[in-house]
Design a protein around this nucleic acid. Structure first.
Lengths: 243, 243
DNA sequence: TCAAAAAATTGATCCAGATCAAATTACTCC
DNA sequence: GGAGTAATTTGATCTGGATCAATTTTTTGA
């Protein structure tokens, strides 16, 4: 499995791995597949349901199979900032830590493949290659978080919206082993409210900026959720990034 | 060494470790001290000097001994966002990666203790406990980055300034094994411009908010850099956080 | 010690995005 | 399929922080 440092974009390159939904992909790295298989449990959450509250004891680790989970922090008066989004194949939980400092919420209907924390950590301790993989993934998450900090601190609303549309498009393309180009069509996986919390904006501003991009012909909307990218290069230029 | 998840606050608890400036603190974990000692080189940078440019090949790893280093990203038109600050004992560089995606700049005069990347990585590979320590540190950095995302996305200018003042105060207190309370005095380690880049604000807004806190008596300034906290609890309440 | 440069403050004005307030459109589930 | 609800869009207005423009303070180094 290859992890693209840019904002969690993930590429599967282990298509025949029977547990490839497990982001650690232990199958390809160890001979402990039997152990992992025996340990796993599937858990389902409805959209909006909280998987783990900030500060709660962490009893399991695992990865997303279907749906989107959001990581978010809340200020004392209720203002909320999303600090991460987990897509299929992303890892949930913090190996070696007993609590999470943020809420994990099912942004859509969500299916997780989970392992009880204790035995999974023992497996990690026995298997340095998994630990190495986890370090690598955590470094990628850190890069993504820092890229996001740049977006939150310095980008305009239009740049934020353009950026997030391309991120969703890339994610969607990766899952169907496609690439994003002119005419690429995808569904926004979350509500405007979730997008607003992710970008540090209000729902209204999100809506207005999407409408503006539509009016200018860079994108087309079919309903509120289905987006067609009409001019990929132009959209990319709206992001304000170097590359 | 204990790492406080809150915004990089570090506590030394290994006072007699001869290489305790090395954040990995390999001395306490391995018998390879001789190896590490033989490998290390000291490097000095003047304030403003760039240690590593974004995208450059990474040839060394190490840790900060004296001064402050900033990690920053720049958008295509020059807008800059600081994505991290490294204080004495913090780790510089990304084990296992050949480049950094952000500039590392000496925010003040800076002294680093560095190791050539290749042999240091080989040492890591031979020493799982160091890898575990690195994973733990990276997870803490990720928490800090996510806390910072909340600040950037949702806090007001006043909340941002109050937060950063307390962070600098805690850092300063930790280095001198003191705690922050009413009457605590410390020096801001960086210019208003660096603070502005860190908080996603302009210099003028930083200055105005500091002046406002002064006028309201929460803090006192001696010159532009020396800050006295008059009312710690009141300042903490300005931060907007839960705790 | 003092001039020159750099850093910080303060003032006046502007505007992007927030806030408040309705519509309008899209789902849900009898 | 249609009522009811949730999600989204659109409009009007307001405001926090940016921008532009001087000063004032601090630091530097000759």
């Amino acid at each position: 499995m290859k992890f693209d440092a840019r904002l969690n974009t993930v590429e599967q390159d282990c298509a025949d791995c029977p547990i490839r939904h497990n982001a650690v992909c232990a199958h390809c790295e160890t001979d402990e597949l039997g152990t992992l298989d025996a340990m796993k449990t599937y858990r389902n959450f409805a959209a909006g349901e909280t998987v783990i509250w900030a500060g709660d004891d962490l009893t399991f680790l695992g990865s997303v199979i279907d749906g989107v989970a959001s990581l978010s922090r809340t200020l004392s008066d209720g203002r909320r900032q999303m600090v991460g989004m987990l897509f299929p194949s992303d890892f949930v939980g913090r190996p070696g830590r007993s609590t999470t400092p943020y809420d994990v919420v099912a942004a859509t209907d969500l299916r997780l493949c989970t392992f009880r924390k204790k035995p999974f950590e023992e497996l990690i301790a026995r298997t340095p290659s998994i630990e190495r993989r986890l370090l690598s993934m955590t470094l990628d998450e850190l890069d993504a978080a820092r890229e996001w900090m740049t977006l939150l601190g310095r980008k305009t609303a239009r740049e934020k919206i353009s950026s997030v549309l391309l991120i969703f498009a890339r994610r969607s393309a990766a899952l169907q082993k496609d690439t994003v180009g002119d005419g690429f069509s995808f569904a926004l996986p979350v509500t405007r409210e979730v997008i607003a919390d992710y970008l540090g904006l209000t729902i209204e501003t999100v809506s207005r900026q999407i409408s503006a991009l539509k009016k200018e012909g860079l994108i087309t909307l079919n309903g509120a959720r289905q987006v067609v990218i009409n001019d990929h290069d132009a959209l990319k230029e709206q992001c304000g990034d170097d590359d």
